[in-house]
Amino acid sequence: MKTVSNLADLRASLDELRQGGRTVAFVPTMGNLHEGHMRLITEAHKNADIVVASIFVNPTQFGENEDLSGYPRTLEEDKKKLIAEGCQLLYTPNTADMYPEPDLTRVDVKHITTLHCGASRPGHFVGVATIVLKLFNQVRPDVAVFGLKDFQQFKVLELMVQNLFLPIRMIGVDTGRADDGLAHSSRNNYLTADERERAPALNRILRDTAAAIQSGEHSFAQLTRQAKERLTEAGFTPDYFNISRRLDLEPAGDDDRELVILAAAFLGRARLIDNIQVDR
């Protein structure tokens, strides 16, 4: 695997790799890679000839009092994992190159970014959309692969690609999980031993709520209230627990059939997110 850190070297490496019409799949990350990221690399291999990953801790998607300075940076370990999975090219740009002065441009996908995580983290998805568009323009992939643990992020980026006519096929990969159901996340590193034992309750509560809906329960408000109560009893501080339409992430109604339940909750230092899709 070759590692490059500036745009000129990235473009030169991509020109070489693309010879013969080979296609490129791109997996953008913030590093501190885990099994969930490796699932993305595996899926990327299935959908293109060349796999390119990036590692960049993006400052514009962190809000005030969030963990930018403390976000784990484990580049050497990340490289070993990517090499083991057969990634051909790693891009590790720096902040000054990604946000050159004057830094005046942002990408704002309206409305959907104000829901769920967007309501709790104002400006977060502007930062996400901005950096992903920059990376897309630099790498110019045929395919981009993202995890569905952050279902809202995937929907935001999918909408951005559609609205801006980007020639990129978006692929969402089901959430990778530990044996007890906890979604793989870099922020799991913040959990104490006791919190790690409690953490799978988030996924259990999501699954129980989905089962209730599939069994015919229509009172989404009651299900939401019960879920938040259970999260609190398990030691979480709920951020949100929302039963939504899968299409646009708006609140689900009685006539909606394709749903997603989105949840975020604090457990100690960690803010954990998860979701489950439900068909009625």
Rank of each mutant, 00 (worst) to 15 (best):
D9K: 09
V4L: 06
L267F: 05
F154T: 15
I276P: 10
M170D: 07
G31F: 14
C117R: 13
I41R: 01
A201L: 03
D142I: 09
F241V: 05
D279A: 12
A8G: 02
F220L: 12
A25G: 13
L90K: 03
V161D: 05
D142E: 14
V24P: 09
A227G: 02
F136L: 15
V52D: 12
T130A: 10
I83W: 11
P102F: 03
L202S: 01
R22A: 07
G176A: 12
G127N: 10
P72C: 03
T232R: 09
I205Q: 00
I168V: 14
L259V: 05
E66I: 05
L231K: 01
D142A: 13
G253K: 06
V145A: 07
F154M: 14
G235N: 02
R18I: 10
H45M: 12
N242L: 08
E195H: 03
S215K: 14
Q277A: 13
S120L: 14
V107P: 07
E101P: 08
A263G: 07
P238C: 00
F136D: 04
Y71C: 09
H37W: 12
A119D: 12
N94F: 01
N242S: 13
V278N: 09
P141F: 13
S13R: 00
Y91V: 02
L231E: 02
R187T: 07
R106V: 15
F266Y: 13
A234S: 14
R269L: 10
L267T: 06
S186C: 05
P251Q: 02
L133N: 07
R39T: 02
L68P: 04
D9E: 15
P93Q: 11
F241T: 03
L133I: 00
A144P: 03
L164R: 04
V126D: 11
G268H: 07
L17G: 08
R230K: 15
A264W: 05
D174F: 01
I171Y: 03
A178E: 15
D142N: 15
V24F: 11
N189H: 12
A178L: 15
P200K: 01
G70R: 14
S54P: 04
H218C: 10
Q222H: 13
G20A: 11
D255F: 06
K79Q: 12
L262V: 08
P167K: 10
F125L: 09
P238S: 00
H116P: 06
M160R: 06
K149T: 07
L68K: 04
V24D: 07
R246I: 05
R245T: 06
A199W: 06
L223K: 06
